[in-house]
Design a protein around this nucleic acid. Structure first.
Length: 307
DNA sequence: TATCCAAGGTAAGTT
DNA sequence: AACTTACCTTGGATA
């Protein structure tokens, strides 16, 4: 199998980069750590650990799953991959093409947002494959971050295509067809709980072409959100996550429990009594165009214990 | 050791 | 259209 290795200096990226913060901040559940220590708060500088993801065959030039491993150490981002264009894939998945300095510079003055930006400078949004992102956030309902991650790993190991690379076996995230063929009981057996039928039915909708997450692309933001709520288990909040973490709507601000707490404590005027209006208000508070960046930093900052 | 509770919400049933 | 309630499971907190 092909092997592509290389590295770049993180200084070449506008605004720097923080791999650990990017993949362990609860925006993507599709990266795993080789040492298995995801979300360990005592792991203050796990930043030099190897992480990996497996691109689904639908996202690759070779039409087979591709393994992408990366780590950040001594100011360099290294990769080892089974893909011919590994850096291009890394750049896309981890939004290395974003000009972070410009994005952060365009955010309105705000005490909480600035503290969050200062604490995790270099964290980037992700660009997850849409179906995997959709399933991840359907699973996120009333769940802790570590368990959401565990569910995606379990789904990959049970229903994903496996690929051998560099002496190891890796599991890709399952296709819609594979999950559509699973039964609710099977999905409950891997601890999805009441989310099991949501995942199965949504997978079915995608597999038979009744609706595709990609169909939201290009619609006006609120219409795009509405489009995603067609899927079972997807309300406004999950739809916003898919828009932000996969479909490039960087203005989306998912109203999760942490952001709702932040609104209560810091932006009480933004509370409008319903999702749509509160969402508009906090989006404006965070500067509109890149409001989702501010949301993700604040989410990670508060969840990690900041105030 | 047992019990309780909250975790990145959504769907279905009531007013 | 707005408001309640049930829903799976589990790790960590509390008694």
């Amino acid at each position: 199998m092909h092997m592509d290795t290389g590295d770049i200096s993180v200084d070449e990226l506008d605004g720097g980069f923080d791999l650990q913060a990017t993949v362990e901040s609860g925006q993507s559940y599709l990266w795993r750590r080789e040492d298995g220590r995801m979300y360990d708060r005592t792991d203050a500088h796990g930043g030099d650990a190897w992480y990996y993801t497996v691109l689904p065959s639908t996202e690759t030039e070779t039409n087979e799953p591709e393994v992408l491993r990366a780590r950040q150490t001594d100011g360099r981002l290294e990769w080892v991959a089974s893909t011919p264009n590994a850096y291009a894939h890394l750049e896309a998945l981890l939004r290395l093409d974003d000009d972070l300095d410009a994005i952060i510079g365009s955010t309105p003055e705000d005490d909480l947002v600035e503290r969050a930006y200062d604490a995790y400078r270099g964290m980037r949004l992700v660009r997850d494959p849409s179906f995997a992102c959709l399933v991840s956030f359907i699973c996120s309902a009333q769940m802790r971050v570590a368990r959401i991650h565990g569910m995606q790993t379990a789904l990959a190991e049970a229903y994903g295509e496996s690929v051998a690379f560099d002496g190891e076996t890796y599991a890709a995230f399952p296709t819609a067809e594979a999950l559509a063929a699973a039964t609710e009981a099977e999905l409950r057996d891997i601890s999805l709980g009441y989310r099991a039928p949501y995942v199965q039915r949504t997978a079915e909708m995608v597999a038979n072409g009744e609706a595709l997450p990609e169909e939201a692309r290009g619609l006006d933001y609120e219409a795009a959100r509405e489009s995603l709520t067609r899927f079972v288990g997807v309300g406004d909040k999950v739809a916003d996550c898919v828009l932000l973490f996969s479909l490039e709507y960087l203005e989306a601000v998912p109203l999760d429990t942490w952001i709702r707490t932040a609104i209560e404590d810091h932006y009480p005027d933004c509370e409008q009594g319903n999702y749509t209006d509160t969402s508009r208000a906090i989006r404006e508070q965070f500067g509109g165009q890149y409001a989702g960046y501010a949301q993700t930093y604040v989410f990670h900052y508060l969840r990690a214990g900041g105030e």
